[in-house]
Simulated scan of single mutants.
Amino acid sequence: MDEKLLDKHMEEMRPYLLKWHREHSVMMLTSPFKTLQYKVGMEGFAKPKDLLCQSYLYSISEAFRELVRTYYYAQAAHQIEVELREKNDILWSNYWKYEMKNYYFRTVIPRIISLLDYVAVMINELSCCEVVKEEGKVYFDPFKSCLKKQKKRAGWLSFKEINELNLILSPIYKDISQSDRNVLRHYRNTSTHRYFVGIDELTVALQKRMLSVKERQKFNIQQTHSYGLSGLPEYSFSELVIIAEKLLNNLDSMLSQLLQMDMIRKSVKLIEEKK
Rank of each mutant, 00 (worst) to 15 (best):
E239A: 02
S253T: 08
S179L: 08
S230D: 11
Y173K: 14
L251W: 04
S236N: 03
M210I: 13
N220F: 09
P233C: 05
M263A: 00
E234M: 07
E164W: 01
Q150E: 15
R194N: 11
I168P: 13
S191T: 09
K144L: 12
D180T: 04
Y139S: 15
K149R: 12
S267E: 02
I264Q: 01
K148F: 08
W156P: 06
S226F: 05
G155V: 06
T192A: 09
K160Y: 02
I168T: 10
Q178W: 03
S253R: 10
D200F: 08
I221M: 15
L169R: 04
D200S: 07
S238N: 13
N189P: 00
L211P: 13
Q150P: 10
I271C: 06
R265A: 03
L211A: 14
L240C: 12
M263Y: 02
R188T: 09
I221V: 15
E201L: 06
P171F: 08
G228Y: 15
D175E: 15
L255W: 00
Y187V: 03
V268W: 01
Q178Y: 07
A205D: 09
I168Y: 04
E273T: 12
L259V: 13
D180Y: 06
N182M: 10
S236D: 04
K246P: 07
K266R: 07
H186N: 10
D200W: 01
Q150H: 07
G198D: 11
L157C: 03
E239Q: 14
P233L: 08
K148E: 13
R209D: 13
L147Q: 10
S226A: 14
I264S: 04
V197K: 06
S212Y: 02
S170N: 11
H186P: 00
F237N: 02
S145K: 10
Y187L: 07
Q222S: 09
